[in-house]
């Protein structure tokens, strides 16, 4: 049982740093947490060096709360801003070469499936738009075609944030960024459409304006990946630095982009849909109306 890994050996508790004591006493392990409970328990996310007010931070923090079984989850990141917080989070975090996430996840998930036959291990990739749509494109697409059972979350800030603001394939046409001095010359890549073509079981697009919706989307994506097939969540996580969004206006920008071109949408394959309906029914029976989704 993996909860053993946060069971303190006899006598050592008082020597552990406060953050670990809190995780042991009041952490997110062994139970589902709702975003509405945030503030009343010790979160897995720890202090980190991402830019103040960065929407990506808020998204990741919410997504981590939403993971249905944190103690059985492994997260894979790559070079890019997101890994700054992921590496400080109380969940095993793999950080390999830039753009390798979905290939690494394929090997990892299969390896874990060999070793833990009866215990689902959730593998979640969280990487930037450059990491997934550009350098990691082949690995992403092929993991989907192969129907690898893990979740891919794109932290789509529409730019290479970590290297100082260059154009990515997910940048909007016309945007003037580094390495696109005359404005980007082609359209934003349609990764949602490509996911559909590749047969991804659950596909969602979300903006972190509504934490509950983010949480439900992530939970759905992870559970469907566990039982059905690959899932993909594309999240608009603006880069306030490179797009010069004043920190207090980050959420205004998110709401505006959501209205203009990034509205919430989700797609299920038939198999994913029937699994999810079954899951919801069961959950309601066990938990009563409380067990329903939060939004």
């Amino acid at each position: 049982m993996s909860l053993e890994t946060i069971r303190v050996a006899p006598g050592f508790k008082e020597y552990l740093p406060r953050e670990y004591q809190d995780l042991v006493d009041d952490g997110p392990f062994g139970r589902e947490r709702k975003v509405s409970e945030v503030g009343s328990f010790k979160e897995a996310v720890e202090e980190h060096p991402m830019c103040a007010g960065c929407a990506m931070t808020l998204f990741i923090r919410t997504a981590i709360v939403a993971l249905p079984s944190l103690e059985n989850t492994v997260i894979i990141g790559t070079a890019g801003c997101g890994r700054l917080v992921l590496s400080q989070t109380a969940v095993p975090f793999i950080y390999g070469n830039y753009g390798d996430t979905n290939a690494v996840a394929s090997g990892l998930k299969r390896g874990l499936a060999i070793r833990f036959k009866d215990k689902p291990k959730d593998v979640v990739v969280m990487a930037g738009d450059g990491g997934l749509a550009d350098i990691g494109f082949s690995a992403v697409m092929h993991s989907w075609f192969r129907k690898e059972r893990f979740t891919t979350v794109m932290l789509d800030n529409e730019v290479y944030g970590n290297t100082g603001g260059q154009e990515s394939g997910m940048t909007q046409r016309g945007a003037i960024l580094k390495m696109a001095p005359l404005g980007k010359k082609f359209e934003k890549m349609d990764m949602m459409g490509l996911a559909k073509t590749a047969g991804v079981a659950y596909i969602a697009r979300v903006v972190p304006t509504n934490a509950t919706r983010v949480a439900n989307t992530i939970r759905k994506a992870v559970l469907i990946a566990r039982e059905v097939g690959p899932t993909y969540v594309q999240a608009y996580t603006s880069c306030n630095i490179e797009y010069a969004i004043p920190t207090p206006k980050v959420m205004d920008d998110a709401r505006m982009i959501e209205q203009q071109r990034y509205g919430f949408s989700e797609y299920f394959t038939d198999e994913a849909k029937s699994y999810w309906e079954h899951y919801e029914r069961e959950r309601r029976q066990v938990k009563g109306p409380d067990g329903e989704s939060e939004d």
């Binding site: 690494v104 394929s106 090997g107 998930k109 299969r110 390896g111 060999i114 070793r115 082949s138 192969r146």
Partner: peptide, 27 residues
Amino acid sequence: LKDYYRGEEEYGVMSAIAGASRAGVRC
């Protein structure tokens, strides 16, 4: 063997080996 597949190309294969090795299996 318990699992086997043809990967997408060598970068993907070597990366998948890195994933499998981290999972604790012999690859």
